[in-house]
Design a binder for these strands. Structure first.
Lengths: 238, 238
DNA sequence: GAAAAACTGTGTCCAATGGACACTGATAAT
DNA sequence: ATTATCAGTGTCCATTGGACACAGTTTTTC
């Protein structure tokens, strides 16, 4: 029972009994997570090492191991802290479609701010309370649509997939004029010099170069998904 | 010009001039890539190290550096080799919808066989000829639908996002009865013990537990996307 | 108050990683 | 036969995640 996941569960979900005896801890999980996030935000996830985070906090790397079982757990903590709980400032407004649209936009914002979170959320993993609260919000937006529980979760997964996909290519485009922008140019050159193998792609790329790019792809995909959901909900209602 | 991407471009796209003088190379790029893929398939991407791949091939790790500039480039090569060119065995059948459906299913198959490819394809990167041929196929399936070049690429990105999302959670479920299956159970427990914070999610999860799971989510998302595209294409046609 | 228990942060050590570089041989053009 | 070129090996290094023993601090218990 309680495999190796037990540690990350306790880290993300508590409880965190504070010690009775002994010296006062210099750090706490939140400070550690934020230190890691700061590094990841500016330098990328690859530069997040125990030593680097420890240095940022003014302690030795081994001090971190008093709070965090290992690096994997540190990253999991960083992810849930960075994503945070869903910002339910005001009560949800509008129907399911408006709610999901707003939800997706906010999720995209988070992934744009912490693009390293993409790398840290590949593969199966334990989700923290923050991440789950986002899922909760999406599923509850579909209450009363006639969709089953499984279908509501499937819809949420579908939206997350799109947000992730766009975040990924948004990172390539990046803030206008950044060094990574050449990636698109390189791919364009590659396609053209092997044009005979990729006729449709070359044509599409040329036509796409004139449009706005990333924002277009985001809205396009989002609206297609919502349209598809609307169709399904309508059918189900009849 | 030609930043640090130049090396991976030459590796993936050639040319690969074979040396005139000197001893015959023991290895070639394809063998190296396949050795890495074999390890990644069975042990995971984390176990792919230069030494491990070299050992598999019966050479020293430094010998690999004669063929590959570094580990990043090795992985890029592995990805494009594993994904391979789109298997265009027979001419495309059916309308755009049938073609895209078939395409998406095949892509999902590939990601299921090489689930590590998910980890290796996060973030912006140079795509190889294999990966591009898949994109070509998806875009060309939408020829004659009235969609612009940008829209056709957006549609492809949308589908890829869904495939990746499903592959990710399919890895968690894994082949029936594997050790990772407990992940879902753990999350279920977590949700229930914090049920008051996730009412909609708890309900949805309970209802979802009775349905089939991963295959359901795959078909659901795929059909919603295709429905959404159909709606758009119809509107555009009028 | 004194002693013991519990806990924190430090310093040292280790295996494995990606990579640099000099070197020994093998091969083909001259 | 000589020489330029290239392949694979062996050695070395910085950095990584992590184990572990130790010194110092604080609280509880006597």
């Amino acid at each position: 029972m309680g495999g190796k996941h037990a540690e990350v569960v306790r880290l993300l979900w508590g409880p965190h009994p504070k010690p009775a005896r002994g010296p006062r801890p210099t750090l706490d999980l939140d400070r550690i997570a934020r230190a890691g996030i700061e590094i990841a935000d500016s330098e990328g996830l690859a530069d997040v090492s125990m030593q680097r985070v420890a240095a940022q906090l003014g302690v030795t790397k081994m001090a971190l191991y008093r709070y965090v079982p290992g690096k994997a757990e540190l990253v999991a903590l960083m992810v849930d802290t960075a994503i945070g709980p869903y910002p339910a400032a005001k009560a949800p407004r509008g129907g399911w479609r408006e709610q999901l649209e707003e939800w997706a936009r906010q999720l995209l914002t988070v992934f744009r701010q912490h693009s390293w979170a993409l790398d840290a959320t590949v593969g199966p993993r334990i989700m923290g309370p923050g991440e789950l609260s986002w899922l909760e919000r999406a599923v509850s937006a579909l209450d009363g649509t006639g969709l089953s529980g499984a279908e509501r979760m499937d819809a949420a997964v579908l939206l997350v997939g799109h947000v992730r996909g766009i975040s990924q290519q948004a990172r390539a485009a990046g803030p206008a004029g950044n060094p990574e922008a050449q990636l698109g140019a390189i791919l364009g050159d590659l396609m053209q010099s092997h044009g005979e193998r990729f006729p449709a792609l070359t044509a599409a790329f040329a036509s796409a170069a004139q449009s706005d790019g990333q924002d277009q792809a985001w809205d396009f995909g989002l609206q297609r998904i919502l349209d598809g959901l609307a169709t399904f909900i309508d059918q189900r209602a009849r």
